[in-house]
């Protein structure tokens, strides 16, 4: 059952990922990106990381992408015009893509013959309680430093975007 869902959503993620690049309309690309994020969330669920899965949807699909879509709509930009493709790209593109994929498959086969579970030090489990405990005890300092970093980023954005008041 797990392997079925993994294959299904892995394929959806890859197809959506390709679609992000090949769509000419910005809204289509943005929606494909949402598809990628949603299928990644399902993959996290299959790995037993419920909290990360939900955070993925809330933060990326729900907040960041809404902002993307919002800006695209506000600018109301149309589809890109397709230009003539360069001949070298057509001739060299497909073979290079195949070589690239073959290299990746080779590397994965060679260096990760049977992938072990992902471990972060002594941390196990993906439920909200375990993550909360880890964040607020073991990783408290990095967590707080990150929040300060985000605060600086917000202040920087406000300063940069502010109109000069005379």
């Amino acid at each position: 059952m797990d392997i079925f869902f993994f294959l299904l959503f892995a394929i959806v993620a890859v197809v959506c990922g390709i679609s992000v690049v090949i769509q000419t309309h910005p809204i289509s690309s943005a929606l494909s990106l949402i598809g990628v994020m949603a299928s990644l969330a399902v993959l996290y669920l299959l790995l037993g990381a419920e909290f990360i899965a939900m955070a993925q949807i809330i933060v990326y699909a729900g907040a960041i992408m809404v902002l993307f879509v919002f800006v695209i709509m506000l600018l109301n930009s149309g589809a890109e015009a397709k230009r003539g493709r360069s001949r070298t790209a057509v001739i060299l593109g497909v073979p290079s893509l195949i070589i690239f994929l073959a290299l990746i498959v080779f590397a994965v086969q060679r260096f990760f013959p049977s992938a072990p579970n992902v471990v972060f030090g002594s941390f196990t489990g993906g439920g909200p309680a375990q993550i909360g405990n880890a964040l607020f005890t073991r990783y408290l300092l990095p967590f707080e430093v990150t929040s300060v970093l985000i605060l600086i980023a917000i202040l920087g954005a406000i300063v940069l975007a502010r109109k000069e008041l005379d």
Partner: peptide, 25 residues
């Protein structure tokens, strides 16, 4: 019953925006 039930509801409701935003656009 999910152990992240509340986050699930929040996630789904945040996706609900797309229906309306897309309809408008």
């Amino acid at each position: 019953d999910l152990n992240v039930g509340l986050l699930f509801v929040l996630a789904i409701s945040s996706l609900g925006v797309y229906g309306i935003a897309l309809a408008g656009w």
